[in-house]
Design a protein around this nucleic acid. Structure first.
Length: 516
RNA sequence: GGCCCCAUAGUCUAGCGGUCAGGACGUUGCCCUCUCAAGGCAGUAACACGGGUUCAAAUCCCGUUGGGGCUACCA
């Protein structure tokens, strides 16, 4: 059975590079009906943090990448590593090293100064029992085979579909057990992967150079090495390895910024893997089609524009009701997470008005956060504070569209413009009152149609056109120059708030007449 | 520096000896249109360079250049 794992270290939040590696492991295992396991590599006591650990678990859950077995923590398996270390020691495949950090540093600097490769001198490699004192601080080093001056260790990489081989002269007698008895990465990974029965290791290619060491360890321990597949790194738009300075890298940040997990997953799977010309893939399709053969060997640049496009796509697939709960979920998250970009705010109450509004907003937003922002005029329960720069739009307003009458001077024209605006808005108020929206027993679409038809009549009766009147209505109702269609806005707002806002706006125009 | 890996448009990629080098994001123009989007149509743009192998190379080989990784008692 195929068994894969994702083994992050909790020294930082789960970032999108890790998420992609996890995804590849997950869909690869599922493709073969196998298992996927999450393992936390917390052997770096200095840098590992509980908060990061929790973030990783939470992020994986959000992405839907669930572990098929209980999450494993290396810090809870210390005895196991010790046992295997003893085994290697007993077999003479590893040795205790008493060299101090200082002397190691000196040796290293000397070698660098001489232009040589900085490697361990091998001073403790052949100490006799008499020369050993286990009470002294010491590490355990792996005894790399140097019997043949031209010995190579090789392994096959499934993504490159070729062998990578390294001369033992390049492999140091690396430390497998630290002074404090905690295993190093290379040692713990091998033991865990072997004991867990991992069949395929899919990981970042920053581990490519570590693999020969691990292969050596598999051999020394008497384990069968798994298959290796090294995925290239994700780069920022400057071509450098992706990091915080490129903007958001943490998975949870994307949640807070209003991205859907399916969009992130879809983006990530296509960054480095392809299935012909397919761009939109559900997780089931990914599982069905995934293979190592079509994983790209070269590094990929993270492109937020394309992620946004995918996010917009998946937003359009959601129902208004789903979107409401998704948006509310972000806000719930933000209460506990202070470093967020999303707007704090009250919970959106689902209703038919909200549904119509959100359906209108769906094609206009690339993120959930954007939807909420664009709903601002609706969510604002009180009076709008109209910005005086809106007066520029009002200035363009013409009551009688066919009439190109000239004014004697500018002030006359402006005075007249304000009067025309107010006249129109009063007409509009009467019209809206007559609609009697409250008494209608129509559903959302039906009501929208009714509003549209009524407006058609209202405009044609007065020889007006929607084209020339819509902006003023939009501004009065939303305080913005950009919004969904005005019929949707009116439906969402409902009769009382629509009338109130028109009234408020009339007051605003009266007050600012002189600014026109 | 040494070792390892990589190289198709601005970006993600298809391609696996013979293609008008295909798709997607972006971008540009047009259409639609109550604003803004969405949508539709059209356009733009690539095989890093130099040698081989071959009747034929984006595809195979070797260099060069460029990028990345490792070179820790980090992972």
């Amino acid at each position: 059975m195929v068994k894969t794992r994702f083994a992050p270290s909790p020294t930082g939040y789960l970032h999108i590079g890790g998420a992609r590696t996890a995804l590849f492991n997950y869909i690869y295992a599922k493709h073969f009906g196998g298992k996927f396991i999450l393992r936390i590599e917390d052997t770096d006591l200095e840098r590992s943090l509980k908060a990061y650990e929790e973030d990783i678990v939470k992020s994986m859950k959000w992405l839907g990448l669930v572990s098929d077995e209980p999450v494993l923590y290396q810090s809870q398996r210390l005895d196991i590593y010790k046992e295997y270390c003893q085994k290697l020691l007993a077999q003479g495949k590893a040795y205790n090293c008493y060299c101090t950090a200082n002397s190691l540093e000196e040796d290293k600097n000397k070698l660098i100064a001489e232009g040589k490769k900085p490697m361990y001198s091998g001073k403790c490699r052949n100490l006799s029992d008499d020369e050993q004192n286990l009470n002294l601080p010491h590490v355990v080093r792996f005894k790399t085979d140097r019997s043949d001056g031209n010995k190579f260790t090789k392994f096959k990489d499934l993504i490159r579909d070729q062998f990578v081989s390294v001369n033992h002269s390049e492999i140091d007698d690396f430390v497998i057990m630290r002074t404090d008895g905690i295993p190093t990465y290379n040692f713990a990974v091998v033991i865990d992967d072997a004991l867990m029965g991992i069949t395929h290791i899919i990981r970042g290619d920053d581990h490519l150079s570590n693999t020969p060491k691990q292969v050596l360890l598999y051999e020394a321990l008497g384990f069968e090495p798994p298959a290796f597949a090294h995925v290239s790194m994700i780069l920022g738009n400057d071509g450098k390895r992706l990091s915080k300075r490129h903007g958001a890298t943490a998975v949870m940040q994307y949640k807070n910024d209003g991205f859907l997990p399916e969009a992130l997953i879809n983006y990530l799977v296509r960054l480095g893997w392809s299935h012909g010309n397919d761009e939109i893939l559900s997780i089931d399709e990914m599982i069905q089609y995934f293979d190592l053969k079509h994983i790209s060997k070269s590094a990929g640049v993270f492109n937020k524009e394309k992620l946004l496009w995918l996010n917009a796509h998946y937003i359009k697939q959601k129902t208004a009701e789903e979107l409401v709960s998704l948006i509310n979920d972000i806000n719930a998250t933000n209460i506990e997470n202070e470093n967020n970009n999303a707007e704090k705010g009250e919970i959106i109450q689902y209703s038919e008005n909200v549904a119509v509004l959100i359906d209108a907003l769906k094609p206009r937003a690339k993120t959930l956060v954007e939807i909420k922002e664009k709903m601002g005029f609706y969510l604002n329960k009180g009076a709008l504070s109209y910005d005086t720069n809106l007066l520029g739009e009002i200035d363009k307003f013409k009551l009688n569209e066919l009439n190109n009458n000239e004014y004697n001077d500018n002030s006359e024209r402006k005075e007249s413009a304000a009067d025309e605006v107010i006249y129109f808005l009063n007409q509009l108020m009467d019209f809206v009152k007559n609609l009697q929206l409250n008494t209608l027993s129509l559903n959302g679409v039906g009501c929208l149609n009714f509003i549209k038809e009524s407006f058609d009549g209202f405009f044609s009766k007065n020889k007006w056109s929607l084209k020339h009147k819509a902006m003023l209505i939009r501004i009065a109702l939303t305080g913005e120059k950009i919004s969904p269609g005005i019929y949707e806005v009116i439906f969402a707002l409902g009769e009382a708030r629509t009338l109130q806002r028109i009234n408020d706006f009339i007051e605003f125009v009266r007050k600012n007449k002189f600014l026109l």
